[in-house]
Each structure stands twice: as structure tokens, then as C-alpha cells.
Amino acid sequence: MQHRRWEDIASMILGVAIIISPLWLGITETPTVMLVTALIGAAVVALASLEVVFLRRWEEILALACGVWLAIQPFVFGYDPPLRNWHIVLGALVAILAILELWQDRNRDMSA
């Protein structure tokens, strides 16, 4: 099965959306949330970029972890809508995309 590049591009777009989400929604009073969100978004972009060059399972597993963390982050830091809703949706999309990629590559030899 051939790896689908659109999935990597979609992950990069989601990563950028994660990075800009606090600024886009005008949430600037919580620097911790902004910093953690920027780091998660940058990690999603970096992992998706790596998948374009080197296809490894650990990249998708880390992307899944980033998505799950982003979805639960609003409850850990206790912030309110609309940013909470955006982060739950964006985190779920990242996680679903990572699960899809893991499922598609389940029989692929990724040792090389």
C-alpha cells in the first residue's frame, strides 16, 4: 500500500491551525496555554514533515499523542470556549489522522 501524501499535508495544516488558534481567537492572556499550544502545533508540523521524508511508525505514534494531549489540554489548564472547543476538535482530528495512518501502514515493513 502506498503512503498517502495528502495525510501529511493535512497534518501540517492542522499543526499550523493549532499554532495560530490562540491568536486567531484573541486568547493572549494565558502565556502558558499559548506556549504549550505552539509547541504541540510545531511538533505536529515537524512530525508530518518528517513523514514526507522518512516513514516511521514512531512519527504517527507521537502525532497521536500530540492530538490526544491537545484534546485534553483544555481540561488540564481549565480554559473556556471557544479555544477549548477548537482544541478538542483539532486534537481529535490530529489523533484520527494518526490512527488512520497507523492502520494503513499496519502491514508495511518500516525497518528500511
Rank of each mutant, 00 (worst) to 15 (best):
residue 1 M to T: 05
residue 1 M to I: 04
residue 2 Q to C: 04
residue 3 H to M: 00
residue 5 R to P: 09
residue 6 W to T: 14
residue 10 A to P: 10
residue 12 M to T: 04
residue 13 I to H: 05
residue 14 L to R: 10
residue 15 G to I: 11
residue 16 V to N: 02
residue 17 A to H: 07
residue 20 I to G: 02
residue 22 P to Y: 01
residue 23 L to S: 12
residue 23 L to F: 14
residue 24 W to M: 14
residue 25 L to R: 12
residue 27 I to Q: 15
residue 28 T to A: 11
residue 28 T to Y: 11
residue 29 E to K: 09
residue 32 T to L: 14
residue 32 T to M: 11
residue 32 T to H: 03
residue 33 V to R: 02
residue 33 V to M: 01
residue 34 M to R: 10
residue 35 L to Q: 12
residue 36 V to T: 09
residue 36 V to Y: 01
residue 36 V to E: 00
residue 38 A to S: 09
residue 39 L to I: 15
residue 39 L to M: 15
residue 41 G to V: 13
residue 41 G to K: 09
residue 41 G to F: 08
residue 42 A to L: 10
residue 43 A to V: 12
residue 44 V to C: 05
residue 44 V to L: 04
residue 46 A to M: 07
residue 46 A to Q: 04
residue 47 L to Y: 12
residue 48 A to P: 01
residue 49 S to W: 09
residue 49 S to C: 04
residue 50 L to T: 12
residue 51 E to P: 00
residue 51 E to R: 15
residue 51 E to T: 13
residue 54 F to R: 14
residue 55 L to P: 03
residue 61 I to K: 05
residue 61 I to W: 03
residue 61 I to V: 13
residue 63 A to S: 15
residue 65 A to T: 09
residue 66 C to T: 15
residue 66 C to F: 10
residue 67 G to N: 11
residue 72 I to W: 07
residue 72 I to V: 15
residue 73 Q to H: 13
residue 75 F to S: 10
residue 75 F to T: 05
residue 77 F to R: 08
residue 77 F to Y: 12
residue 79 Y to N: 08
residue 80 D to Y: 11
residue 81 P to D: 14
residue 81 P to R: 14
residue 81 P to L: 09
residue 82 P to G: 03
residue 82 P to V: 08
residue 83 L to E: 07
residue 84 R to H: 14
residue 85 N to K: 12
residue 87 H to V: 02
residue 88 I to Y: 02
residue 88 I to W: 00
residue 88 I to H: 02
residue 88 I to P: 03
residue 89 V to G: 04
residue 89 V to Q: 09
residue 90 L to R: 01
residue 91 G to R: 06
residue 91 G to T: 07
residue 92 A to T: 15
residue 93 L to P: 00
residue 94 V to S: 01
residue 95 A to G: 12
residue 95 A to P: 05
residue 95 A to L: 08
residue 95 A to Y: 09
residue 97 L to H: 06
residue 98 A to S: 15
residue 99 I to V: 15
residue 99 I to K: 01
residue 100 L to Q: 03
residue 101 E to S: 06
residue 101 E to T: 09
residue 103 W to I: 14
residue 103 W to Y: 13
residue 105 D to E: 11
residue 106 R to Q: 13
residue 106 R to W: 07
residue 107 N to P: 00
residue 109 D to I: 08
residue 111 S to Q: 13
